[in-house]
Simulated assay, not measured.
Amino acid sequence: MSNGTFIVIEGLEGAGKSSAVALVNDWLAQRFPGREIVNTREPGGTPLAEEIREIWKAPRQEAMAPMTELLMVYACRAQLVETVIKPALARGAVVLGDRHDLSSQAYQGGGRGLSAQVASLAQITLGTFAPDLTLYLDIDPAVGLERARQRGALDRIEQEQIDFFLRARETYLAAADKVDSIVSIDASQPMADVHRAICACLERHL
């Protein structure tokens, strides 16, 4: 933690990312008082990227082609990484991201079947840049989507069929098995247990 640190919260709809982000913010503020914490979200996180996000997320009559969706999310990511995340890390800040490249691997790669294209765009826009720690909140898509419905109207991605999310979940789990910096946490547990697991993971890694 003496240098800039990049932590990312990942998960399907309804996994509890928002509450996890709030928890990690509190944990960091208590453990490292005075340390700058920069919060980001993807797609979005800059004025330009937020404009693209609005187009990307909103349901519309014109169907968005999968490749269009993919290119838009990487345009947002490139802008966020270059203008916010990398400068913050260079200052020694902790960057806490609500989603990053693993979301594209899961949603556009696994869900849309564009794994090769995702890998190519990630290499072009990110190179070897990656989070120091990713907390993946794992949940059955059916359970997560029901939670999302209870929050209100579903966005364009949340309206996808269940098979889309099943493929995305498989990709998330495969990445967690393969990459040491990705930690899978059972998000179907009671919230208090999920939060205890997150804090224990932060203690081990940071």
Rank of each mutant, 00 (worst) to 15 (best):
A116G: 05
L206N: 11
V143G: 02
I7E: 02
A176F: 09
V143S: 05
I198G: 05
Q159A: 11
G109Y: 10
R204M: 14
Q150Y: 00
M64F: 12
T5C: 15
T5V: 10
L137C: 11
P33S: 09
A153H: 12
A88Q: 06
T46P: 02
Q108R: 04
T83Q: 13
Q105F: 14
T171H: 03
P47Q: 09
I139W: 02
P131K: 06
F164R: 06
R167S: 03
A88M: 06
T5P: 00
A153V: 11
P33G: 11
E62W: 12
R99A: 07
G11K: 07
A168F: 06
R60V: 02
I182V: 15
S103N: 06
G97F: 07
V81L: 11
R41M: 07
Q61M: 08
E62V: 15
A200E: 15
A168E: 03
C76L: 05
S18R: 03
C201K: 01
A122N: 14
A130L: 06
M67H: 15
I157M: 15
G92V: 04
G92H: 04
V21N: 00
P66E: 02
R60F: 00
G110Y: 05
A175Y: 11
I157D: 03
E51I: 01
I198T: 09
G92L: 07
S2D: 13
N25A: 08
E10N: 06
E203F: 10
P87F: 08
Q159T: 14
V21G: 00
I85K: 04
A122C: 09
R31I: 02
E146M: 08
L133I: 14
A168M: 10
F164P: 02
G45K: 03
P33C: 09
T5Q: 12
Q189C: 01
R196S: 12
P141N: 01
Q123G: 14
A148F: 06
G110C: 07
A116D: 14
L114I: 06
A187W: 03
Y172R: 06
H195L: 00
G127L: 05
A200Y: 00
P33L: 08
G97R: 04
G4L: 07
T134Q: 01
G113K: 06
R60L: 00
L126S: 10
L137W: 08
L202S: 00
Q123M: 13
R112F: 11
S19Y: 02
R31W: 12
A192E: 15
E203T: 13
V95G: 04
Y136D: 05
M72N: 01
D140R: 04
E146R: 14
P190N: 06
P190R: 00
L96N: 07
P141V: 01
Q79Y: 07
G34I: 09
R196M: 08
S19F: 10
R147I: 09
P190W: 05
M67W: 09
E10F: 03
D138Q: 12
Q61L: 12
R156T: 07
A122I: 01
A49S: 13
P43S: 10
A148I: 10
I139H: 03
S103W: 05
I7R: 05
N3I: 09
A174E: 14
R151E: 04
L80F: 01
T68D: 03
